[in-house]
Design a protein around this nucleic acid. Structure first.
Lengths: 135, 135
DNA sequence: TTAAATTATCGCTATATAGTTATAATGTCA
DNA sequence: TGACATTATAACTATATAGCGATAATTTAA
């Protein structure tokens, strides 16, 4: 327990407003970039989507996404290294689950931003924007 | 003006809660991935940081980041294509500015997530986590 | 018009990685 | 033990891109 933060009165865990990208050193900036990079691949986003409703093993994810098994394993390893998913072995199967539900909130925020961008750029907006706002 | 959305009563612009990554088609998912990709490079994050306090031209950004001019131009072109920045030419200079302040909010949220991940993974947490929470 | 300043683009190299097939590694069950 | 199921990894190809130097393209100023 630190409790020694100056001008801040809170119990233990920092609130979101405490975080700021400004003035990060190289290492921290690389971590942030790596986090974004983990989310920068369509099939990885598909994988994360399959984990919305709870943990799944590699076979299930492979089937749900339609990708090859080796490919999925590599993507899952990357997501695990990046800290976005947790894993647990049960017998011969390995179950993956989302490390933090906030990941989905983040993705949904980006969907909103992308919808705005698409609205701004073209005005052949309708189709894609409808997709992005669909739920 | 559509106004024909079923079961939704709002004026014109959708609120953030309307967006969700689930059930996106391939095109929309690619757009979301591209958005994350634009943020997945440390020097591009540095560039965005230089735009926090207002627009800057290429020379200024080049000097502030210490990168090469050609490199900065390429990164800026990518950020422009991705819709993250806007640009305006004044004489021989081109000024870039953030398209949406929400971009910084997003980056700060990610800083918070990364801090959590780092806390979870190692416990040589102190240094990096201090960086991520600094402001 | 010429020179200078600013930015974008070209050509290039090095590196990273998405995807595939084949196979190794591990655990389960007969 | 051996057969099977599941997952991770190796080897490979193709593609993307970060970075650099040189240069083209554009505008301003002398």
């Amino acid at each position: 327990m630190s409790g020694g933060d100056i001008m801040k009165h809170r119990d233990s865990s920092p609130s979101e407003s405490d975080f700021c990208m400004q003035a990060l050193d190289e290492s921290a900036l690389n971590h942030v970039a790596a986090y974004f990079r983990a989310l920068s691949e369509p099939n990885r986003l598909r994988i994360l989507n399959t984990l919305r409703n709870g943990e799944k093993n590699v076979s299930q994810i492979t089937q749900l996404t339609g990708c090859g098994q080796a490919n999925i394993s590599k993507h899952l390893a990357l997501l695990y290294e990046a800290g976005l998913v947790l894993r647990e072995t049960q017998g011969t199967a390995t179950y993956y689950r989302i490390a933090d539900q906030a990941t989905f909130d983040l993705c949904d925020i980006v969907c909103g931003n992308v919808a705005k961008i698409v609205s701004r750029q073209h005005d052949s907006t309708a189709a894609l924007r409808a997709q992005l706002t669909a739920r």
